[in-house]
Computed example of a mutant assay.
Amino acid sequence: MVQPTATKAPARKPVSGGGVFFSFAPWIIFGVVAGPSTWEYAALAALVASVVLSGQDMLHGKLRVLDMTGIVFFAVLSVLGLALSRGQLLWVETYAQVISNGLVAAVAFGSLFADPFTAQYARETTPRELWHSPVFTHINRVLTAVWGTAFALMAISTWLAVLLPAQDDWFNWVIPIALLVVAVKFTERYPESYKARVT
């Protein structure tokens, strides 16, 4: 049985301070701005946001997988936008949002096989002796899986927007925003809910 006093605070910590949400900000910026004629600007804006939001942490040696993926991905897109012609980049224009959402989903699901990416943020405010506790591990595996699922569904939704342009507003805006809201609400509530069940 896990002692309530030992797990109550850490169970809530994965979302404290908004750290994990800040790491999603560049991806959300890209998703909002990217379009057939604006994806280059979206990539540059997302790259700047990635560097600004994670730069201080990187200077202190904190390398988070989602932050690093964002910096590399948006830097590559920015370089491609400068180096290649519009015709050569037609596939990027068409599938930019699908690719970005799919990449975040892949990073999230991939991290489950090593270290759930949400745990990287939770450790910053959780005592070291609790990092390997069953409660801490379970919460972060679930949160990571939820975010991975949300972005996988967003990738599918934005892909459908390409196939069904008449429904663009639904698949590019309404559904992705709804998925983000659900993921945020779940992240805010699940730790305490799970802790209450196991204690």
Results as ranks from 00 to 15, higher is better:
residue 82 L to Y: 01
residue 174 V to G: 00
residue 168 D to W: 13
residue 48 V to Y: 04
residue 115 D to S: 08
residue 178 A to T: 05
residue 110 G to F: 05
residue 164 L to P: 02
residue 86 R to D: 15
residue 52 V to Y: 15
residue 39 W to N: 09
residue 13 K to Y: 04
residue 22 F to P: 05
residue 13 K to W: 01
residue 193 S to W: 10
residue 12 R to Y: 10
residue 191 P to H: 03
residue 85 S to M: 06
residue 115 D to V: 14
residue 174 V to F: 08
residue 136 F to M: 13
residue 77 L to I: 08
residue 14 P to M: 11
residue 135 V to G: 01
residue 58 M to K: 10
residue 56 Q to Y: 15
residue 34 A to P: 12
residue 131 W to L: 12
residue 20 V to P: 05
residue 39 W to T: 08
residue 65 V to A: 14
residue 49 A to D: 13
residue 193 S to L: 14
residue 156 I to E: 00
residue 49 A to Y: 14
residue 36 P to S: 03
residue 164 L to W: 11
residue 198 V to D: 07
residue 197 R to Y: 10
residue 146 V to A: 05
residue 36 P to W: 07
residue 38 T to V: 02
residue 46 A to F: 11
residue 137 T to R: 14
residue 194 Y to F: 15
residue 186 F to H: 01
residue 7 T to M: 06
residue 155 A to E: 12
residue 67 D to Y: 13
residue 32 V to R: 11
residue 176 P to H: 08
residue 183 A to K: 05
residue 132 H to P: 04
residue 11 A to E: 00
residue 13 K to H: 02
residue 42 A to K: 09
residue 123 R to I: 15
residue 196 A to R: 09
residue 121 Y to G: 00
residue 89 L to D: 04
residue 42 A to R: 09
residue 84 L to E: 08
residue 123 R to C: 11
residue 83 A to T: 04
residue 87 G to F: 09
residue 42 A to D: 10
residue 25 A to H: 07
residue 182 V to N: 03
residue 92 V to I: 15
residue 44 L to A: 11
residue 175 I to M: 12
residue 149 T to R: 00
residue 89 L to V: 04
residue 147 W to C: 02
residue 69 T to N: 12
residue 109 F to S: 00
residue 86 R to P: 10
residue 161 A to T: 08
residue 42 A to H: 09
residue 27 W to K: 07
residue 176 P to W: 10
residue 175 I to H: 05
residue 39 W to E: 11
residue 4 P to Y: 05
residue 30 F to C: 01
residue 66 L to H: 04
residue 118 T to Y: 10
residue 64 R to V: 12
residue 7 T to G: 03
residue 8 K to R: 04
residue 77 L to H: 06
residue 189 R to G: 00
residue 95 Y to K: 13
residue 37 S to K: 02
residue 179 L to A: 07
residue 56 Q to V: 14
residue 179 L to W: 06
residue 9 A to I: 15
residue 29 I to C: 09
residue 166 A to W: 02
residue 48 V to D: 03
residue 67 D to R: 10
residue 86 R to L: 11
residue 143 L to Y: 00
residue 140 N to K: 03
residue 118 T to N: 10
residue 142 V to W: 09
residue 182 V to S: 06
residue 85 S to V: 11
residue 164 L to E: 11
residue 37 S to V: 07
residue 146 V to I: 13
residue 138 H to P: 07
residue 83 A to V: 13
residue 175 I to K: 01
residue 178 A to M: 02
residue 20 V to L: 15
residue 102 G to V: 07
residue 104 V to Q: 01
residue 71 I to D: 10
residue 124 E to M: 14
residue 89 L to E: 05
